[in-house]
Design a protein around this nucleic acid. Structure first.
Lengths: 187, 187
DNA sequence: GTCTATAGGATGATAGAC
DNA sequence: GTCTATCATCCTATAGAC
């Protein structure tokens, strides 16, 4: 069943993704969710609490999705490639990375924490996959898997930025292709 | 001499960098610049015109800075490394990349154009440097220099995102190190 | 739980005096 | 050119009835 708090959180998630924290008003949340003013303030103390619930849920979902994909079988390079190349609505950008640009978000320890945890987890998870590949000789032995993992996550996040600037997904695809080509090089 | 329009544009540039388009109000611009309401609306028709002037100036400056650094002597890898590793206020992020997250900016052809042009120019310029290096045997011959250029710009833009999420520049530095390590591999 | 009423401040301008 | 006054709307709630 769809509870009222649930509908509020879902609408907040969408709006935060599209418009960020500053650009998201309680009124817009009410309109999108179809929940009235009084009802919203009955379930949540205000915008900060609502945003926190929304950000936590989005972060959790992002980790679940990534884990599901990275756990699939294959060589390290195959698994990483699959993750980087999975279907994405590139021009929408990343719902977590987007919030990184909001001063009110990075200034709040509570709101920033889920972002930090998500990217840290993702970098660690990718580093593990890369380390496995390195142990099997797929990846050059001299490379720091932690650094490469950071590079790959940055390529995704930066790819979104380039795509939105260009108004097309092409630069995102190029950036991913370049990263995978570099990674597949044999030392 | 410091003209009034100049001070308005400079303040707008700072605010757009810090708070984005939605988060920047005419009132804040007036307060930061020390220019009065009437004066501001005498020189500019409103927020959109002011933002356009500010974005254009920032884009121009970014290209000038990059060109100055990339034109310095050295091997291709040296020049690219110098550009990626140059001193940056990482946690502040990129004043151009930041605007990419603003729906009002990417929706406006006028405001988006300078972002698009800047990144397109930068990718092209890096691709040229990489192609030179490839011709000299510094870089593996099979690599698509256009793709690698996109990868490198994405690493910078994504590095800012990861750093702001983490609250420290470390992930940015890791991402850059990883990219340069991959690039320096010999095929 | 949900509704309407109310409120103090910000937003993004316009109008007209000086 | 710059200043002050004014304005309609939005923002983010709080209060209290139902």
């Amino acid at each position: 069943m769809e509870t009222t708090p649930d509908r509020l959180i879902e609408s907040t998630r969408e709006l935060l993704w599209e418009r960020g924290y500053v650009g998201t008003s309680p009124k817009a949340i009410q309109q999108r969710s179809g929940v009235g003013q009084g009802s919203m303030y009955h379930h949540f103390s205000g915008k900060p609490e609502l945003a926190l619930a929304a950000v936590r849920r989005t972060a959790e979902q992002m980790r679940e999705t990534a884990e599901r994909e990275l756990a699939l079988p294959g060589t390290a390079v195959e698994r990483v490639s699959r993750y980087l190349r999975r279907e994405r609505d590139v021009l929408r950008g990343c719902p977590i990375g987007r919030l990184t640009q909001d001063p009110e978000v990075v200034t709040s320890p509570q709101l920033r924490a889920p972002l930090d945890e998500t990217f840290e987890w993702l970098r660690g998870r990718l580093a593990d996959v890369l380390a496995e590949g390195q142990a099997r000789g797929e990846i050059a032995p001299g490379l720091d898997t932690g650094d490469i993992a950071a590079t790959l996550v940055a390529v995704l996040q930066g790819g979104y930025v380039l795509a939105r600037a260009a108004g097309t997904a092409a630069p995102f695809d190029q950036a991913v292709s370049g990263a995978l080509a570099l990674l597949a090089q044999r030392a």
